[in-house]
Simulated assay, not measured.
Amino acid sequence: MDQTLHQRPAIELDGVHVTLPSRAGAIAILRGIDLIVPSGEAVAVVGPSGSGKSTLLMVIAGLERATAGKVAVAGADLGTLDEDGLARLRAAKIGIVFQSFHLVPTMTAIENVALPMEFLDQDGAFAIARASLDDVGLSHRESHFPGQLSGGEQQRVAIARALSTKPALILADEPTGNLDLATGAQVMDLLFTLKERTGATLLLITHDSELAKRCDRTVSLADGQIVKGGAKRA
Rank of each mutant, 00 (worst) to 15 (best):
G15W: 01
H140Y: 07
R88F: 01
V227H: 08
L171V: 05
K195A: 12
S150Q: 02
V37G: 10
R23S: 14
G69E: 04
I159M: 09
L78I: 07
R65W: 05
G69F: 04
Q155E: 08
G184P: 12
V43Y: 03
G95P: 08
R141Y: 05
P21W: 10
V16G: 12
R23I: 03
L57H: 05
T198Q: 13
D121L: 04
G152T: 10
A26F: 02
V71I: 04
P167H: 06
A234E: 14
L169T: 07
I205P: 09
L63C: 09
G15D: 11
L171Q: 07
D121N: 14
T80H: 00
L211Q: 15
T165S: 15
E83W: 01
L202A: 08
D2L: 12
V18Q: 08
R161C: 06
L57C: 05
L86T: 11
G124K: 05
A76W: 00
T80M: 04
H102V: 00
F119V: 15
A200Y: 05
C215Q: 08
A68K: 11
M117R: 15
L163E: 01
S209W: 01
K232D: 12
E111L: 00
R161A: 06
L81I: 01
I36K: 12
D134K: 14
R23L: 13
D77N: 14
L13P: 10
P48A: 15
K53T: 05
S150I: 06
L171S: 08
M107Q: 13
T108E: 04
L20H: 09
D134L: 08
L120D: 08
P116F: 01
M188N: 05
E210N: 13
A91G: 14
L103D: 03
Q99L: 06
I110D: 02
V136H: 09
A72L: 02
A162L: 07
V18R: 07
F192E: 08
E111K: 09
A28M: 08
D134T: 13
V227C: 07
G50V: 02
H102W: 02
T201G: 11
T206M: 06
M188I: 14
Q155K: 09
G52L: 06
Q122P: 00
A212K: 12
A168I: 00
V97A: 04
V113T: 02
V43E: 02
G95S: 10
P175N: 08
I11P: 04
K213Q: 15
A61L: 07
V59P: 06
V46P: 02
E153W: 06
E174H: 11
H6F: 15
L89N: 03
I33A: 08
D216P: 04
Q3A: 14
L190D: 10
L133I: 07
L56F: 06
D173N: 12
L163V: 14
T206S: 11
L81N: 10
D77M: 03
D77K: 02
H207T: 11
G25D: 12
S164C: 15
R197F: 01
I110L: 11
E196Q: 15
R90A: 09
M58L: 13
L35D: 12
L133M: 13
L138E: 05
I159C: 11
I226S: 09
A185E: 15
